[in-house]
Each structure stands twice: as C-alpha cells, then as structure tokens.
Design a protein around this nucleic acid. Structure first.
Lengths: 232, 232
DNA sequence: AATATAGTGTGTATTTGCTACACTATTAAA
DNA sequence: TTTAATAGTGTAGCAAATACACACTATATT
C-alpha cells in the first residue's frame, strides 16, 4: 500500500461510499481529511482519477488503499457535476458504492494515504457532518442499495461467507429500515433455493446456536441472471 | 438555436439517448456526424461540457439544439471512462437518456449544429452501426428504461397528453419486447387510479374509436412518491 | 437447581395479485 | 348492408405474500 500524490491532477475525481455490516448495523467507512479544502473534516474516500487509468481502476485503487482488500463488490452510482460542489472550481466526481464483508478485515483500516489522517467506520444512523456534497452522495447511494437489494442478491456481499438467517434478516431490516416477519422471511428466502445449509452452527453465543448457511453460487448466478424479484 | 463550437475542450462530454414512441414503435434520435473522428457515422447527440455549465445543463442544451424542445424528461444513465473509447485519448462521457413525446415535435428535427449533418429518428429495432461505444451506451439505457418502467410511471413521458389504453399497452409491449394480455393490462392499469377518463374519443380511425385518457397528476405524484411497483 | 432471557425454529389460514381465456359493441369504408 | 378492424368487458383458478402463536434450546444469573 502506498500513498498516491496528486501530480497531474485531472479535472475529475471518484468517490466511494463503502458499506459494511456489523452486529446488526450498517456502517460507512469515512476518512478524516488531511488536506485543504475541508482539512480535518470527515469525507468519503476519493481522489483524482489518473490519466492512464479507467474510473473503475481508480475506485479499486482507492478501496485497496483504505481496506487492503481487492475483489470487492462495487458499482457506479452517479456522476456529480454541480458548479459549486468543490470550492476550488468545478470538479466532477464519479461516485461509486462498495459493499464489503467486515469480517474479512483482519484489522482496523489504517490511514494509508497522505490525504487521509485516519479511516474509521461510522454507523450509518449517526454520521458526522461531511465535506463537499458527500452527504448528498451518501443519501443517493442508500436509495440505490435499498432498491437494488430487492431485486438482486447484493445482500450477501455484506455478510461473511457463512451466516445465519437471522443475520441475513437483520441486514434486510437495516437496509429497509423496518422489521420483517421472521417466519415469512425464512420461508421466502429458503424458497429461492440459493442458500446451502451447512452442517455447522454458530459458536461462542450464550444462547441456542443458529445454523449457518452459505450462498450456493450456481443457483445464485441463475437468480441473478433472470433478475428475479427479490420481493419485500 | 445556434451551433456550439469546441473552444476550450474539457476532458469530458455528455451523450444523450433520446427515446421517442410513434405508431407502436420505439425510436431513437441519432445524428450523422460531420466531424472527425467517425465523420459520416451515426452517433448519439453529444458534445463537450463547457466549463461553466453543469452536466445537466449541457444535456438540456444538446436536447434543445436537436429537438427545439425544453422541459423534456431526462435522467443520468452512466459514466463511461474506458481508456480506448475515444480514439483521440481518454475522454469520459456522462450518458443520459431522455424520453420525449414525438407528437410534440411540430416538424422533423433538423441539423442544428456544426458537428451534425442531420438528425434522424431510427427504429430501435433497426439501428445502423454506431460511432465510439454508443451501441453499448444504448444497450445500457434500454435495460435501464425497461427496468424503470416497471416501478415508475415514466411511460407517460413518451405518450401524448391524451392517449388510449391501447397506445399505453403498445408502449409497454415495445419496451419489454413481449405481448401483454389486453384485459389484464387494462384492469391493472385502471386499478392504479392514476388515469383520468376523458369524455373524448379517438378521431379519424376507421374502426370503433377508443376512449382517451390522461394522467391524473395528483395521483401520479402519490404513486411516484411511494415508489409503488408498477408490476409486469 | 431454578429462573430469566434471548434467540431459534416451525404450520396454517387468509388475502392478494397474476394468469388465462372469448365474446359483443362500435365505427368507417366498401 | 355487409365487411373489416379494433374497442371493450368478467370470471375462475392458481401462486405468492402476509398475518399470526407457540414450543424449543442454550446460556447466564441467582
């Protein structure tokens, strides 16, 4: 991991809304800026796109710099080009969102770039004030994820490889912001036939251990292809 | 309407996929390029974004130059930034799509810019070979519209103010590429209660004239707000 | 050992929405 | 007046979504 300094600054940047899910709660990875403008403010990880890299590559790079992870699920969200969004002139930003398994993170994220003093997971329901139009970008990505989770199995990107049905339900509840009926949720989810029941159970819990499941990738692919409605 | 020459060319452009619907068929407005690269090829209307205009404004401008219309429904689609998409170097394009009522057009669109020799409506099912990655952009916008029409009433943007239920059905059929059952379609559509039955009928047809409807904007707003599923 | 707690795990009845399907009515033109 | 073309209408069966209540298991605390 190495710092990337702005040499030939292009006129556009990319910013990434990084979602994580831990203990029933959605979280966002934010950085504390170490550069002007908005030095000391919280912001989305993001940076100028180099001239010889695609935008996708730039986002992957930024993600890697902040999490040490590759191969993370990410998708382009929207491009913001208001004249006043950046105090130093019109700088267009192509925003992405990424979903990542927090359990994959061996350690806490560290400040790995010069422009970030630290990177910290914040609960989605309790975000600090943010630099630029980043609050707006976040709001837009939440809407997007909220919609997308109902017709595509992106939820699993946020869970560890082995998970319980309760975890899965809590994730849907966190994203939609409302409680779901346990029996109906299980019935529906198992009916999709995209989960593989494992002969394993939770460990280290002080109550009845729940069964673990994992995604059946072959069936998952089928569902994804057909864009079946993952209903509410 | 005036031509806009590239003076200080920014590093990014905007392209617009303009959908129209006429006689049961979806159409796209394409231009014949009058500039290199791809001179003489068909392409999406698009141009460099000026330094002092937002991207949205740039698209509106381009739409106006080619159709003479303002206030058209449009939405950002995706931003394309592959290194090789433009032969003259990496030029990022922010693609939009627009839906417009063809009946609003008093006359055929005319070549109104220097970079376009002519602008012509092409049936979506029979497009010529296209410049740059424009075919790819079009494919992506079709998917988007196809999905969006099932949860949001964007269809009405493509119809005249007063329309028959058959016209509406034909539009859904054209976008989804499959036939729908007439009775089920009518039942469902009328159940949404977003249409106002007019005391008027079609004219100039040599068969039983169909009743005209128009959108009830108040109820429409409600549906749109709740993001009710406009089912298949 | 008893108790409280918290989470797992299961079945059924009701409602709602989707699908399939065929005939009569109206109009204009021949 | 006949023909041709499209508008307009209802019902029954099936599948999916929802609403709803209780028993079981494991653990921690007293």
């Amino acid at each position: 991991m190495q710092a990337n300094l702005p040499h030939l600054q292009s006129t556009f940047t990319t910013d990434c809304v990084i979602f994580g899910f831990h203990e029933g709660e959605l979280k966002l990875l934010l950085i504390e800026r170490n550069e002007y403008p908005f030095k000391g403010w919280w912001a989305l990880p993001g940076f100028f796109v180099e001239h010889n890299e695609t935008i996708d590559d730039a986002v992957k790079r930024i993600l890697y710099e902040h999490t040490g992870l590759r191969g993370i699920y990410m998708e382009q969200l929207y491009t913001f080009g208001d004249l006043k969004r950046h105090p130093q002139g019109r700088i267009v930003t192509v925003a992405y969102y990424a979903l990542l398994r927090l359990d994959d993170l061996k350690s806490q994220p560290e400040p790995v770039t010069d422009y970030a003093r630290q990177a910290v997971w914040h609960p989605l329901n309790n975000l600090p004030e943010l630099a630029f139009d980043h609050r707006h970008i976040i709001d837009k990505s939440i809407s997007k994820v909220r919609r997308k989770i109902s017709y595509s199995p992106i939820a699993f990107e946020l869970l560890p490889e082995k998970f319980t049905l309760t975890q899965l339900q809590q994730l849907y509840e966190a994203i939609w912001g409302r409680k779901l009926d346990k029996r109906n949720f299980r019935k529906k989810m198992l009916n999709y036939n995209i989960l593989k029941e494992l002969p394993e159970f939770q460990r280290g819990v002080s109550y009845r251990a729940a069964r673990l499941y994992k995604l059946d990738k072959r069936k998952y692919a089928k569902v994804f292809q057909n864009e079946l409605t993952f209903a509410r």
